[in-house]
Design a binder for these strands. Structure first.
Length: 199
DNA sequence: CGTTCGATGCACT
DNA sequence: GTGCATCGAACGT
């Protein structure tokens, strides 16, 4: 895999659990006029198919979940709780609705810009907390509905292999959902300070 | 420490 | 009208 290059579409055209694990250690990059912000993915969750009650595809095709039914390697962004944008990478082939939710990043570049974007919250956010949690990382990277349906295989929003060393990962139940909590489809770097959830 | 709860917008039934 | 793939402040031990 070439260094500092976006992952190709075929990376996403695979089993969603495999993609969720392989995304750990890859770099989510957003290039905007404010500058480049990037972070290492350290926590993901898989949402797989209409049979998964927590997946947005559970009700079948709708206007909102349309990207899940489309080609892999595309960003699926939506607003939830009326105030947080969440970003997913669409996986598997067309017509097989599934995606990986990006839940946390280790900040890598553009921390000054991230801090400005997060400034609405506490006056000072420590670096490890800048991209801890799916709502926080989209705010830090400036991701909103404007990035929905963008291809992740090219700028301005991409996931890249920067040749970083492989990391240990562990699996456990998905969090923040009220159904489908029995499926151990959350994947993260154990002990990492940027991972969300109980600390 | 722990848990609860309000903010806030929109897709969906 | 209802219910969220959240966050963090505000409470109660």
């Amino acid at each position: 895999m070439a260094r500092n290059r976006p992952l190709p579409r075929r990376f996403y055209d695979r089993d969603t659990l495999t993609v969720a694990a392989d995304l750990i250690g890859k770099v989510l990059v957003h290039r905007t006029r404010s500058g480049l912000t990037a972070g290492v993915i350290v926590e993901t969750e898989a949402y797989i198919g209409e049979a998964d009650p927590a997946c947005h595809a559970a009700p079948g095709p709708t206007k909102r979940n349309q990207p899940l039914y489309g080609p892999p390697g595309v960003a699926y962004v939506y607003l939830n709780y009326g105030m947080h944008y969440l970003v997913n990478a669409v996986t598997e082939g067309e017509g097989s609705p599934a995606a990986v939710l990006i839940r946390a990043l280790e900040p890598l570049a553009g921390m000054d810009v991230m801090r400005k974007r997060r400034a609405g919250g506490r006056p000072t956010v420590d670096t490890a907390g800048l991209c801890r949690g799916p709502g926080n990382l989209t705010k830090a990277l400036g991701i909103s509905l404007a990035q929905n349906r963008l291809a992740l295989t090219e700028p301005p929003l991409s996931i890249e292999d920067w040749g970083l060393p492989a990391r240990d990962v562990v699996w456990g139940p998905r969090i923040g959902i009220r159904v489908g909590t029995d499926r151990p489809w959350r994947c993260w770097v154990p002990g990492h300070e940027c991972v969300s959830g109980k600390r």
